[in-house]
C-alpha cells in the first residue's frame, strides 16, 4: 500500500535533520554559544540570537505535553481515524522543545499528559524519507517493533 500522507520537502537547510532520522538520531539545532536547543529549527538561537547552531542528537526521551484523538482526518489520514496527534516535550532543557507528531504502538485511549515517550523511526517505502513517531517509553526498540506495527489505530503504520 502506497504511503499517501504528506511528507517533508527536504532541502539543504533541513537535510541534516532528515538524514539524522535515517541514521536513527533525532537532531535538534543546539546553540554553540548559550547551549540552548531550539525547536522548531530557526536560523538563529531564540535565546541569544547567535547564528552558531549545530545539529545535535537528543536523548529521544519526551513526555506527552498535550494530545488529541482525531476523528475526521484530512486526505489519507481519514482512513486511520481515530488517530492520535501529540505535542511531546523533549527532555532537553532549558528552552522547551515541543514537537508535534503521531504515535506508534500506543492505544490512543491510553494517552495522558505526562506519559513518558520515546522517539522512534519509520522508513517510508518507495520514498527517500524516514519519519519519526512517538512510542511509549517502555516500548521495544525499532529493530523488534514488528509486533507493535500490528496494534490498531496507528496513523503511522504502513501495512
Amino acid at each position: 500500500m502506497t504511503y499517501l500522507k504528506p511528507l517533508p520537502q527536504i532541502e539543504p537547510r533541513n537535510k541534516e535533520f532528515w538524514d539524522g532520522l535515517a541514521a536513527g538520531e533525532f537532531r535538534v539545532p543546539k546553540c554553540d554559544d548559550c547551549g540552548h536547543y531550539n525547536w522548531v529549527p530557526y536560523p538563529a538561537c531564540r535565546s541569544c540570537l547567535s547564528e552558531n547552531q549545530t545539529w545535535t542528537p537528543v536523548s529521544r526521551d519526551a513526555t506527552v505535553w498535550s494530545f488529541s484523538l482525531v476523528h475526521r482526518g484530512p486526505g489519507a489520514f481519514n482512513d486511520d481515524v481515530p488517530y492520535a496527534v501529540v505535542l511531546a516535550k523533549l527532555a532537553e532543557e532549558p528552552r522547551s522543545c515541543i514537537v508535534l507528531g503521531n504515535t506508534v504502538g500506543i492505544d490512543p485511549n491510553d494517552l495522558y499528559i505526562g506519559m513518558p515517550l520515546r522517539i522512534v523511526f519509520e522508513e517510508i517505502p518507495g520514498e527517500d524519507v524516514t519519519v519519526f513517531r512517538f512510542a511509549a517509553a517502555d516500548a521495544a526498540e525499532p529493530d523488534d517493533a514488528d509486533a507493535a506495527l500490528n496494534v490498531e489505530n496507528q496513523p503511522a503504520t504502513v501495512a
Binding site: L4, P6, I10, V70, G73, G75, A76, L100, G101, P155
Partner: peptide, 18 residues
C-alpha cells in the same frame, strides 16, 4: 485524496494529520 504522498514544508503539521 492524493495519488502519491504530497510534499509539504519541513515542519508542517500536515505531516501529522493535524
Amino acid at each position: 485524496m492524493p495519488d502519491r504522498a504530497p510534499r509539504v514544508p519541513d515542519w508542517s503539521f500536515y505531516q501529522s494529520g493535524a
